[in-house]
Design a binder for these strands. Structure first.
Lengths: 334, 334
DNA sequence: CATGGAGTTGTAAGCACTTACAATACACAT
DNA sequence: ATGTGTATTGTAAGTGCTTACAACTCCATG
């Protein structure tokens, strides 16, 4: 079943069938509808390979992420896939694993599939310490659009959609301070583009309120519940005093709630806890954790819309910023 | 950059280059290594379209799932993708959304991409009430392998890898009963292949222990924390007495824990709670929820291994069952 | 030294589509 | 009727690969 069968049955040439297939306007309405009828009657679907060979496009974009089982990225994949499909594009997925080993090889593997664009989901793909490690991305962007979801790299052909993490954290810290908290602990997991922005928001808010930024109140921690709980216990044991915990990820906030339970601290009275990403986890604890909704759906929709504009030759800003929303639940009163 | 460039540079014909590309043994070692060198030097990667046209295979399998943001399916996607890639296959993903509307259209869309196989992740794709609604899957299986992860459909060309949900639930209920629980509430979300098996495990265990199965202790509930909590509150308010809650999903178990908190019930003394899937959520609560590890990684690895055997013409059983593991945490003492 | 066969390589015909360019049809003005 | 221009359609040459089959090389054997 191919284009010849259709053309024979419809009494036209294969070129005309191809034109109908591609929505070429140079076909009379009469011919078009006749061809379409035949295609339906025969249940014809064009062969993607032959199509790709001719058009040299697969109508497919590559999505790279570190670990699709991370709740945040899982949502991102879901929304990206949905939006791409709505625009007639398939997505081929490639997860590098949370260690991000061989991310460059994976990237090139996906490129070799002749994808029409690349979407890198998550801020971890952009190296903020060794800029030259991003060169392979910058080079690739010369050939095809590269979209970053929650990452930023300033180079032609690379388009970023980011959440305003700095502002979100600034607002959270500012409101905590205005409600009387003075010793706000900041616990974060990763040293990344968004990670640095979050930290900056925290610092800026303290500075703006005339509160000295103390390094001993800024701690790094593995991205898991137990590690966060243990960290807070050992900090408290060592005599550190704090009345609020801000975290860069909900999992850390869950650990903070467990710490509060272990010490019989009342939340939010004795300790305010704020998570990040407003994931399912933040709804599991008792009390539920106030968190920052980073608008992952909006981020993904915007990313795909920008991509479509890039495909259409439109002028797209290299960076689009989307505001986050603080979601007040039970571990704060701000 | 194509096969001609390589053949010219290496001083051989394109047929020879193609043979090297496809690992054909009828190439002398000398020629093979020379061609490989040239390919490396030129940074040549074969064009997938042309390749697909000739071979009529894309080395790609379609993965369908309802909602990749569901933690269980997110993990499934991650493991499936990883294993497929390890075997030289790409995956193209298609999420139907949790409503599963148009699942048939999505299925056929993926088929039209000329994927080499289909993997349906999650038990919801198999209709257990209207068998004829599965016909499109059965028909497709005549043309290409269809793999079901945690679903079962007995037809040629369809291979299922399922978790032994019945046995898992049987063990849980049996142990709860043996430890003295008598009024075990069973709360479930969906009417599906695995859903029915879970329920059967619960019923069988009660029956085997001479405990009458009471319909008022078996309740359906929306798949979210609040719905489960509200359900238990209203059941308790209406005078229903229960000393354990078994659930078909961790989210329901989280709701049960919240119910226990609201009623100041001690877990596990006053109320035992058991979740299902042993997801991150079950680790978020205080106390942490005992749950059933459904071995999603093993399930996915087995699925892909079976698929590779099917590709290789091997004899593969239509159904492979994998045992689940009960993970004792803090909401039970069994 | 011819012969046969195994091992290796090349030729050329697909595969199913796109599209530049040529050809034709048609409408309308002259 | 003739010419002109536009709308529509067809022809044929790619697109980059696979592979059946033919052809060649080389060596051992008779």
């Amino acid at each position: 079943m191919n284009i010849y069968d259709v053309s024979a049955k419809a009494g036209v040439s294969i070129a005309t069938v191809s034109r109908v297939l591609n929505g070429n306007p140079n076909v009379s309405d009469k011919t078009r509808s006749r061809v379409m009828e035949v295609m339906n009657a025969l249940g014809y679907t064009p062969n993607v390979f032959a199509r790709g060979l001719g058009l040299n496009t697969m109508k497919t974009v590559g999505i790279m992420c570190s670990d699709s089982s991370d709740p945040y990225l899982a949502h991102a994949i879901y929304y990206l896939e949905r939006e791409l499909r709505a625009n007639g594009y398939d997505s081929i997925l490639c997860c590098t694993g949370s260690k991000l080993i061989n991310k460059r090889q994976y990237f090139e593997l996906l490129l070799s599939k002749r994808v029409d664009a690349m979407i890198l989901a998550g801020s971890k793909f952009v190296e903020i310490d060794s800029a030259e490690d991003n060169n392979y991305i910058i080079e690739a962007a010369a050939d095809l659009p590269v979209m970053l979801v929650n990452g930023f790299l300033d180079a032609p052909g690379i388009y970023s959609t980011v959440c305003d993490d700095r502002d979100a954290m600034y607002q959270v810290a500012d409101r905590l301070i205005k409600s009387g908290r003075r010793r706000i602990l900041y616990v974060y997991t990763s040293h990344s583009y968004s990670g640095e922005n979050k930290k900056r928001g925290y610092r800026d808010a303290l500075a703006a309120n005339g509160i000295p930024v103390r390094d001993d109140l800024i701690c790094q921690c593995g991205k898991n519940i137990a590690a966060a709980k243990e960290l807070l216990i050992s900090l408290a044991d060592s005599g550190l005093d704090f009345d609020a915990v801000m975290t860069s990820d909900d999992s850390l906030a869950v650990g903070a709630v467990k710490f509060a339970h272990a010490r019989a601290l009342d939340m939010p009275k004795d300790l305010a806890v704020v998570g990040y990403n407003n994931s399912m986890m933040s709804y599991c604890t008792d009390p539920e954790i106030s968190s920052v909704d980073t608008k992952i759906e909006a981020l993904c929709i915007t990313t795909v819309q920008s991509l479509m504009q890039v495909f259409g030759g439109g002028d797209v800003p290299r960076k689009t910023t989307i505001a986050a929303d603080f979601v007040q639940k039970q571990t704060t009163d701000i």
